[in-house]
């Protein structure tokens, strides 16, 4: 069984993003970039399936600029077998990515596609579901547990208020939630080996899919600054603030 794991290069989770003063977006100059954490969980899950003898090959794919090669190498160092970069300078949006991924799925013929449930930059939470929709494959989103047996995937999903377990026939699309696993720390020999693993670079034009963005970002603004903390003098005041100001209870 082949597993395809799409991965996205994003601003690292430890970076405090800054909105550009002209409102055109977020400042990405000299900012640490790394693999989207949910995608890292996807890579880890695929590798574990391979280690358990369930998967035979783990192919990671990233879409974007040449710098994504570095992200792919990270996944290869974790233990993925092969990398594919679909190179483009276009701004990619979930629907376009899903279309490109569909084309790749038809080419690679995996039985399972594991994606992160969302990217921590645009927080869309769409690509996996869209890919499943385009392929008309079943989807197991927000997975916190995944088992594969007899051509079926049993997925425990994190849903509001609890867990839901679904059984899906393969091929299927899975998206990962945080508790699915804890990605491994890569060893140095594997980092070295990853440099020798195959990484194919395709151009968007090589794939029979349309990926022109259809949503325009008009501007990006910083949020309301977090208010400085205050001291309340009584339980009554605390409860009132939580209800009326913070709206968390």
């Amino acid at each position: 069984m082949k597993i395809l794991v799409p991965i996205k290069r994003v601003v690292d989770y430890t970076v405090k993003v800054r909105v550009k003063p002209d409102g055109s977006g977020v400042d990405l100059n000299n900012v640490k970039m790394s693999m989207n954490p949910f995608d890292e969980i996807g890579v880890e899950e695929a590798i574990r399936l391979k280690e358990r003898g369930i998967a035979s090959e783990v192919v990671v794919v990233s879409l974007g600029s040449g710098a994504c090669q570095e992200t792919i190498r990270t996944a290869l160092a974790m233990g993925a077998d092969r990398g594919v970069l679909v190179e483009t300078d276009l701004e990619l949006q979930p629907l376009g990515i899903a279309r490109l991924l569909k084309a790749l799925v038809l080419k690679e013929q995996p039985q399972l596609v594991i994606l992160g449930k969302q990217a921590i930059d645009d927080d869309s939470n769409q690509t996996g579901q869209m890919l499943a929709g385009l392929l008309n494959w079943p989807q197991g989103t927000f997975a916190s547990k995944l088992e594969i047996a007899d051509g079926r995937a049993t997925v425990t999903r994190e849903v509001d208020g609890g867990l839901e377990t679904l059984e899906l026939p393969l091929p299927a699309v899975i998206t990962t939630d945080l508790r699915l696993n804890e990605p491994r720390y890569t060893t140095l020999p594997n980092i070295m080996k990853a440099k020798r693993r195959p990484l194919d670079v395709l151009q968007v034009a090589d794939l029979p899919a349309e990926a022109v963005p259809s949503i325009k970002t008009l501007k990006v603004q910083p949020p309301q600054p977090r208010k400085p903390g205050i001291r309340v003098s009584s339980v009554e005041e605390l409860v009132r603030k939580l209800r009326e100001e913070a709206k968390v209870i």
Binding site: D12, T14, V15, K32
Partner: peptide
Amino acid sequence: ERAGNPWGLAQDN
């Protein structure tokens, strides 16, 4: 690796 400090707090802070 990512933040340059073991708590993962923003380098900018």
